[in-house]
Write a protein that binds this DNA or RNA. Structure first.
Lengths: 98, 98
DNA sequence: ATCATGGTATCGTCCAACGATATTGTGCGT
DNA sequence: ACGCACAATATCGTTGGACGATACCATGAT
């Protein structure tokens, strides 16, 4: 249930961080965990894949420290979606945070 | 995708309104629609059922205006969940709304 | 050339979302 | 008293996402 609610938050976090800079899977997992969102790779990677497939993120391979990493950054479409999400959050806050 | 993000918001809305007073299906649908969330009965009712089944809401039948309505209100468990969600929203806002 | 490591990918299962359609209970008109 | 129309709730079949667990891959070190 809580998970159900937080999955949206997780996607927003991802878009937000991919907007501020490049991200990759494991880093994002740690970041999310530090915010109290426990998520497994079996959940995160499919989310990244679908975000890329749908055009919200772009991927770039890089060998860093002897490991192949897939770096993601946001696209224009992703930015639009993020803005829309923020707008909805503002509305939500205005309504329920009284 | 957007839908995926907003489903959590919808659950929060439901808990919030069920906290302020009694709600029922169709009214909740209109309320959500007025906030820009389009949702069908095939989505809403199962959500209400599962929220009740899991103890976040309680149900009460009432005949109003010749129609049988199922009124829902929040439970203690639901209030706790709502508070937790609000806390997470605050954290999210603090992080991404800069 | 083997191994450990950091990182990514996917498999099987289970549950949720969805639009569409069916079902229910009630009051009203006749 | 009967059937009909209506508001509201419920459910069906399909499709898609979440999850933990497990497998996979590329590289550098020894």
């Amino acid at each position: 249930m809580m998970r159900n609610i937080f999955l949206g938050f997780i996607r927003i976090h991802i878009l937000h961080h991919a907007n501020k800079g490049e991200i990759f899977g494991v880093w994002m997992m740690d970041e999310l965990r530090s915010h109290g969102y426990s998520i497994s790779t079996g959940t995160l990677y499919p989310i990244l894949h679908s975000l890329e497939k749908d055009g919200y993120l772009t991927k770039r391979d890089e060998v860093a420290d002897g490991k192949v990493r897939k770096y993601y950054r946001i696209t224009e479409k992703g930015i639009t979606a993020l803005e829309e999400a923020k707008k909805k959050i503002r509305e939500l806050v205005d309504e329920i945070m009284v």
